[in-house]
């Protein structure tokens, strides 16, 4: 009896090892679908986080001159996108600066169809490093109303699906 049990146990063990590799009796299949969903994504990054403008000397008084600062902009989007900037930025010290700074977006690549200053630029889906330049500009006749000091403001660029 003991021998029979031992033999049966050994046979069961062998069967357990053999079964997974045993040839199927016929065949069977099951299919699961595979899907990939890429959601829309847009991103904008400014190369410089500070745009600094400085008047230089007294020759500015009574003279119309520009003072400006600019930064390159990187745009990433997997959909057609539009980059927009506000028209102006207000500057303030202890009091508001009497003039606003104009903002314009300048396309660096004519293939974007944008070769002039604008408040927006359309970009096709893709990675666009240094695609455009954002320029902050004050163009005025300088005088005593331009009180000495440092005036601060913020320019915010938006990119959105087009």
């Amino acid at each position: 009896m003991q021998k029979l049990v031992t033999t049966f146990t050994a046979a069961a063990a062998l069967l357990a090892v053999w079964l997974p590799s045993a040839a199927p009796q016929g065949s069977a299949q099951d299919v699961a679908s595979v899907a990939l969903s890429i959601e829309k994504y847009v991103s904008v990054t400014l190369d410089h986080h500070a745009l600094v403008m400085t008047t230089v000397d007294g020759t500015w008084w009574g003279v119309t001159k520009k003072t400006l600062a600019s930064t390159l902009v990187d745009v990433e989007a997997n959909t057609d996108a539009r980059l927009e900037a506000p028209l102006t930025v207000e500057l303030k010290d202890t009091v508001a600066y009497p003039a606003t700074a104009d903002i314009c977006i300048i396309g660096e690549n004519l293939s974007y169809g944008q070769d002039e200053s604008s408040q927006w630029v359309d970009l096709p889906a893709g990675n666009h490093p240094n695609a455009v330049t954002v320029q902050v500009k004050i163009d005025k006749q300088w005088g005593p109303e331009d009180v000495a000091g440092t005036y601060m403001g913020t320019v915010t660029l938006e990119v959105r699906e087009r």
């Binding site: 847009v42 904008v44 403008m53 008047t55 930025v89 000495a148 660029l157």
Partner: peptide, 17 residues
């Protein structure tokens, strides 16, 4: 993500004259 924004500080320094 269909909208994003980035900001930069803007400063204007007018020297004494």
């Amino acid at each position: 993500v269909t909208e994003a924004e980035a900001s930069a500080d803007v400063s204007l320094t007018i020297e004494e004259y």
